[in-house]
Design a protein around this nucleic acid. Structure first.
Lengths: 229, 229
DNA sequence: GCCTAATATTGATGTTAATCAAGCGAGGCC
DNA sequence: GGCCTCGCTTGATTAACATCAATATTAGGC
């Protein structure tokens, strides 16, 4: 791992106050691995061997049941994932695959648990991280249960615009079928929903979404700080 | 608080290894309060003043948006709730109301954060608790996204039966409209879904559900250890 | 630049679930 | 007992969403 990447990982809130010694202990057993696009990194039901951190590229978390699949999240650098499974040493509830070529830092799960048992600062950072993650899933659940698919899309567009700098112009970084799954709808309905949103201030041309009328879009989307963000 | 209740709280995994001193510190500022049925205990959007623990009775966690409401969880003794909001000192994402007359132990949020900063055992217990909770919400999200309403009901019946001792006979402890909300459907559809399940080994008479054919029900429900439990 | 394959859109249809409306039934009250 | 209320059920209708099928569009490979 180059120094730049090491610094990024060190700067994660999760490691911020961990002692140098313990951080080195974690890193000495870790390794950085490069994966091509479309590789399954972990499979739900397996026991965790490593804590994963996306250092480069993007990763989709998804779950399957009875021949159905649903995307649960899409991760960008620098993010840890499957932390809860590692801490509890219980099977993954989600699978993960690379959406692009990616670099993943893998820290042996046993090392994470060992440092967690000895380093109070790490334990405290974990509490904060998990509390934050918990709240994110609660938001997802509310988004899913309280909004229809067009509203979810409208709010995603607002959030993604903010994330891309609020220029009122979004360039898709994932393909539409992945976005559809992420938003809990079929690709067909994503198309139809985008067509619907033309009435509410969104112009689309291929992978470019332009918000032509923010007020109208917000009026329709009804963004809610207790669901979004 | 009587000794019996104090012991129940002390026995929570969350407080298991907390020093006597710190536990007393938490309890000295806490108070036990009795609420009638139907009282709103917390409101989403408010900042947390207390960590709540259901000591007696049952509590519904729910969320609202745009004139819609959905139940997110139903809690029985002895359970903490809104822990993540307290830790992060951020607004509640859920509201809570009593479904029955209830006793709630309320620990000032500031005290929880203070002990969390000083007691490593408490921090570690919090990590475990939050990781567990996180996994529960992920299961809920998968349940919601990967199953239709009849399947959710079928699996709820299987789980509730196990919870009530696996006698193949369930007595509803909440009314059906609450159960419907909990399962993400309308009361009307709960009725219809129960009628559907007659074909799959469930006989109902009022608030009594009898599993007449477990094999048939399991065949239909397709329980999944990565979603249920 | 053209062909091909993958991706996206559009249309038709079926399924699932919400809504609106009416009816049933058990328990409480006079 | 009769009536009322409330919770539940049943039916009819509509809305949301998935699925299947066909067509259009785009991006790569040569």
């Amino acid at each position: 791992m180059r120094q730049a990447e090491a610094d990024l990982v060190r700067a994660l809130p999760l490691f911020e106050n961990v002692s140098e010694k313990h951080f080195d202990e974690l890193m000495s057993t870790a390794f950085l691995q490069r994966f091509p696009q479309g590789v399954t990194l972990i499979r739900e039901g397996d026991l965790p061997d490593f804590l994963h951190i996306v250092v480069e590229g993007s990763v989709e978390l998804f779950a399957t049941h009875d021949a159905h699949e649903t995307a649960l999240d899409i991760l960008e650098p620098v993010t840890t994932f499957i932390l809860a499974a590692v801490i509890r040493d219980e099977v993954y509830l989600k699978s993960a695959r690379t959406l692009t070529p990616a670099q993943i830092l893998m820290i042996p799960a046993a090392a994470v648990r060992a440092v967690f048992d000895r380093d109070a600062a790490f334990a405290r950072a974990l509490v904060n991280e998990l509390a934050m993650r918990y709240r994110c899933v609660v938001r997802s659940l509310k988004n899913e249960k309280l909004r229809n698919s067009t509203e979810r899309l409208a709010n995603w567009i607002l959030q993604e615009d903010a994330h891309q700098g609020g220029k009122g112009q979004i360039a898709l970084t994932i393909d539409k079928r992945t976005l559809a799954s992420r938003l809990g709808m079929t690709p067909e309905n994503l198309s139809r929903n985008l067509a619907q949103l033309a009435k509410h201030g969104v112009v689309t041309s291929g992978p470019q979404f332009i918000i032509s009328d923010v007020a109208a879009l917000r009026e329709f989307a009804k963004p809610n700080s207790l669901i979004d963000q």
